[in-house]
Design a protein around this nucleic acid. Structure first.
Lengths: 185, 185
DNA sequence: GTCTCATGTAAACACGTGTTGACTTCGCTG
DNA sequence: CAGCGAAGTCAACACGTGTTTACATGAGAC
């Protein structure tokens, strides 16, 4: 057994993300996480203080919006949808967004996290674009469409057969375009 | 103690819907349901066979789309959004849709239920409207937007301050209109 | 009124959970 | 190489869960 505290912590966080993403907070057990990490369950308490803290530490999130300054303003919506598809399907199973969407359904802290992300990052993006009207409203609209797409795809499990990638990019891109910059009346 | 099996079953189902809607499947306990119903926990097993079956029996769902035949075709989207707002905010706390959205996050059976509802009722509606292209795609788009709205409102807890009712009706109504009947390219 | 059986009660069971504390073992420092 | 502290192990604990079982009791039939 190689003894290295940092490595062990890293392995635990990785395993935690995977399990939390797949099963949500309640249904994942510390024993399963520890097993996946190849580590003793007691070490979760030693290093993180408990399941709750491991969750908090594992699920930090940054949407990491790309630089949109050189994107034509009339293609922002499409770009955003493509960006999210790429992000979601880049890392296979441990995406933090998925953890939160799944977990927020029954965990108040996770829901609060998402709200914070929306308030800080999405509202920020919208404000930066300088569209007329209430930036919060526009941000909430964008969130409702994007979280809905994420929910149907990654929680319900709808596939390309139900909604092909190209159709989604085109149709939802147009929607986001309007939510970001268009007329809302 | 009034002894009436049917009444007891009814009380249990009502309490179950409330708790499942509020906390999801995993976090609600049969003891809590029984307490809310003012009934002995053992009766859940006597009458339903267990927690799983009580859940299944409590959460049956029918979207109950209104008759849309006399709605002008260019106002279908708006009508649909208004319908959903009315439906969601009609019954205060025991809405079955909320149960499912929350629970599907970690419960495979609930996710399957929603998929069935979409496949049968939403695809049915779209087909009936006779729009060009793949009805499944259009239905999935509608679902992504409506479930996203439900998720941000009733799971994340965004309020009218984040997205006013009128803005939602107008903006999302226009989106649904396009998803139902418009050009998707 | 009494008998009977569905209805309701109470306690315990079996199990899985997160967590803890005492112990062992490795790796480094002198 | 010896000693010591950090890293890891093991077993048990305390608790909450869904469920079952044996028992009490009320309501309706005759």
């Amino acid at each position: 057994m190689a003894r290295n505290a940092d490595e062990t912590r890293r392995k635990l966080v990785a395993a935690a993300r995977q399990y939390f993403a797949e099963h949500g907070y309640e249904r994942t057990t510390v024993r399963a996480i520890a097993a996946e990490a190849g580590v003793n369950p007691a070490l979760i308490n030693r290093y993180f203080g408990g399941k709750e803290q491991l969750f908090a530490e594992s699920v930090s999130i940054d949407l990491g919006f790309p630089d949109l300054s050189d994107v034509p303003r009339d293609r922002l919506g499409e770009t955003l949808v493509r960006f999210f598809f790429a992000r979601w399907e880049g890392n296979a199973e441990d995406d933090l967004l998925r953890v939160l969407i799944r977990t927020a359904a029954t965990n108040a802290e996770a829901a609060e996290r998402i709200r914070t992300v929306l308030a800080e990052q999405v509202v920020g993006l919208v404000t930066q674009l300088g569209a007329p009207g209430d930036a919060r409203h526009r941000a909430a609209l964008v969130a409702s469409q994007m979280l809905g797409l994420a929910y149907t795809r990654y929680v319900l499990g709808l596939t390309d057969a139900d909604l092909s990638r190209e159709t989604a990019v085109a149709a939802i891109g147009a929607t986001l375009q309007r939510y970001l910059l268009g007329e809302l009346t």
